[in-house]
Design a protein around this nucleic acid. Structure first.
Length: 298
DNA sequence: CGATTTTGACCAGCGC
DNA sequence: GCGCTGGTCAAAATCG
């Protein structure tokens, strides 16, 4: 990899020609999928594979299990790297259950970035007083590197930068990106105590492609109840755990294919039929994607 | 008038 | 140490 490639993951040589949807991990994952050495086309083929996709959305954690995240230990020694380098593998277990416990630990890791010292903390009126006051009680050890929450990134062909995903976001920053004429926007979930962030940028190589990166997981239901109702009606326990764009995937199986007006239809309608066939069918009765669960249990 | 966006400043991490 | 870059803060502006 060249130096530029290390600094910026999306290179002119990467093929977007056939790209309709790409999803993938920044960081290693249990499936062994590692996009760091792959072209985007390869990523597409790999990530549309359902087992990877389902892990990305934490399908296996739809139950309310509370699991301590072993990555909290392994992550402390990780190198703080750019997105492209992260793909080489940092989190041993980047996808953890959606739970209050996770949320709490997430806040410690995520908010360290904004509360850089005790002095700052005393000066600053933090938005999430409860979460950040915890940081005061748990000052960062000397030499301790800040953790980075598990991330999930995907690309979508869309004219709209900020794709509707059912959650409410507040923009808190925008930065010019090296090697790209398009700025990167930073958003934070507006829900109190929710530490989820997302970044949105356009590919400089193909301006029609929007790159969205989610960090951490929501600890609350999507406020878009009108769109979540169909899912909640059939599988209430899914509501808090599944990103609404995945709900949209579920919804896409319920809705007639002729329904082109669904806000996030771009995610699915832009996937070519062959790739779409690789997507699994959701088992509403069991709240699971059977192929994934079966593979896990065997 | 509260919520949200804009935008320049600031800071941490990293490479040289 | 210095410069570069990504990420965040926070005051001001704008929106509904």
């Amino acid at each position: 990899m060249s130096d530029d490639q290390n600094k910026y993951p999306y290179q002119p040589n990467d093929s977007f020609q056939d790209l309709n949807m790409v999803s993938g991990f920044w960081g290693s994952n249990p499936t062994g999928f590692d996009p760091s050495h792959m072209s985007f086309t390869d990523c597409l083929q790999e990530t549309v594979d359902y087992n990877t996709l389902s892990r990305a959305f934490d399908i296996s954690c739809l139950s309310s299990h509370v699991v301590n995240d072993p990555a909290n230990d392994t992550c402390n020694s990780k190198k703080n790297v750019s997105v492209g380098e992260e793909a080489g593998g940092i989190n041993e277990n980047p996808l953890t259950p959606n739970s209050a416990e996770l949320s709490s630990s997430s806040a410690v890791g995520g908010e360290e970035e904004s509360c850089k010292s005790n002095e700052d903390l005393q000066k600053k009126v933090c938005e999430d007083g409860d979460e950040k006051s915890k940081n005061v009680n748990k000052p960062k050890q000397k030499g301790e590197k800040k953790k980075r929450e598990p991330r999930f990134a995907f690309m979508t062909k869309s004219d709209i930068d900020n794709l509707e995903d059912g959650y409410r976001w507040r923009k808190y920053g925008q930065k010019a990106v090296k090697n790209s004429p398009f700025p990167r926007s930073y958003y934070r979930c507006t829900s109190q105590k929710c530490t989820v962030k997302k970044r949105i940028e356009r590919s400089f190589q193909d301006p029609s492609v929007v790159i969205t990166t989610y960090e951490s997981q929501h600890n609350h239901p999507s406020p878009a109840m009108n769109r979540g109702q169909a899912t909640a009606m059939l599988a209430p326990s899914l509501q808090p755990a599944i990103p609404s764009f995945q709900q949209d995937y579920i919804l896409s199986q319920m809705l007639p294919t002729s329904n082109q007006n669904h806000p996030n239809s771009v995610f699915y309608n832009n996937v070519n039929p062959q790739q779409r066939l690789q997507l699994p069918e959701y088992n509403f009765m069991q709240n699971t994607f059977p192929s994934f669960v079966d593979k896990e249990e065997t």
